[in-house]
Design a protein around this nucleic acid. Structure first.
Lengths: 202, 202
DNA sequence: GAATTAAATGAACGCTTGTTTTATTAGCTG
DNA sequence: CAGCTAATAAAACAAGCGTTCATTTAATTC
């Protein structure tokens, strides 16, 4: 056999990405074989190499897309309001919703960094740093305007990111809590953590 | 050649554990080969099998020891004081110091769970749950006595654990911040996060 | 409808993997 | 110093790995 009826390159490529994210997230990049990915797609392993030069290229593609989507998501929802508390709230809300919706690719992007080559690792880390910089800027503004209590901007940014990203470890949609409840509770914790002051009319 | 001069089973076994933790943490369990572990010890791969039946047994041994050491550490430092704020403070302080000191085995215990067999996974998770239960009990007591503000005990426990475990991702001893400073700042954030009320003499 | 391109197969390659087997030596015991 | 056991080396094992290659078929183009 060779080309199958109804086959379409675009669909196959998308199917490879989906299968790979799912398998990498569940079993880990190193533990997943190209044959397993191919089987999930319903294709032979050799077919993967029509779309991705190597297994690592596939991993990198997934990670880069994830980070770019995260940044794009924040850019779309970043409020014009300069108020640090409003911006922090929007950041936390967007972060949680995005990560809950993309548990698998988040898992891959956070856990499989060590499987990337040096150059690709730093490419992904550059995207990640750019994103985290947004949070640090909010915290710095908030600290300067005394709307937020921040002992150390870098440390607080890391603490908040770890906390709100950690939601994907235990949260399963459709169980005890809804996304709305989780987002609300995490937001409340973040605002207490930074001792956020309500905006005052004056 | 065969047995080497000065060889000692006890020392070799300890060296295998050390090398394995280090390599597993840096490159991931699946990516590390038995030959790499052996090379780090200065021994042939076959020698590992005198001490650990399989590679997975070695991983499991490291994880079980890590969790047991964590629980033992908390049991040694758990205060008699029933005050929830004092207990929460002790918990956070112990957790951070323990994890900073054992970055590598923490990494392994958190990242490589999926490489364990079903039964062993649940053994490790049982230990982890027992540890987390301590935090949940503190939060519940604190909420009931109105010393702490806790919207949801389970969710808050996860948030705090993610936050204070996350320290190992970015913290490197001997850089900008000392362990003391980090522990103090994380404690302050935790107490704000739970809106902890100072103990009052009455 | 012939020629071309796109999509996929199936077999194979060279290597590496975790593990086992066998043989050999070091150090201890009596 | 003979005998024993613990500790290791060395070599081999079958299985599986990522990847390549020549080939075949489906769809598209002219």
């Amino acid at each position: 056999m060779a080309r199958t009826t109804g086959s379409d390159g675009g669909r196959t490529e998308a199917a490879i990405r989906e299968a790979a994210v799912d398998l990498f997230a569940r079993r880990g990049y190193e533990a997943v074989t190209t044959r397993q990915i191919a089987a999930a797609v319903g294709v032979q392993a050799a077919a993967l190499y029509r779309y991705f030069p190597t297994k690592e290229d596939l991993l990198f593609d997934l990670m880069r897309r994830h980070m770019e989507a995260l940044i794009a998501s924040w850019e779309a929802k970043r409020p014009d309001d300069p108020d640090p508390v409003a911006r922090l709230s929007a950041f936390v809300d967007n972060h949680i919703r995005f990560h809950v919706e993309r548990r698998h690719s988040t898992h891959v992007s956070n856990m499989e960094l060590r499987s990337l080559s040096k150059e690709r690792l730093s490419q992904v880390l550059r995207l990640r740093t750019a994103y985290e910089k947004e949070l640090r800027a909010i915290l710095r503004d908030g600290a300067e305007s005394r709307r937020l209590t921040v002992d150390d901007v870098g440390l607080t940014a890391m603490a908040i990111i770890q906390m709100i990203t950690g939601v994907i470890v235990w949260f399963r949609p459709g169980e005890r809590l809804s996304v709305e409840e989780v987002a609300r509770t995490y937001l409340a914790m973040t605002l207490r953590l930074t001792a956020a002051q309500e905006a005052r009319e004056n």
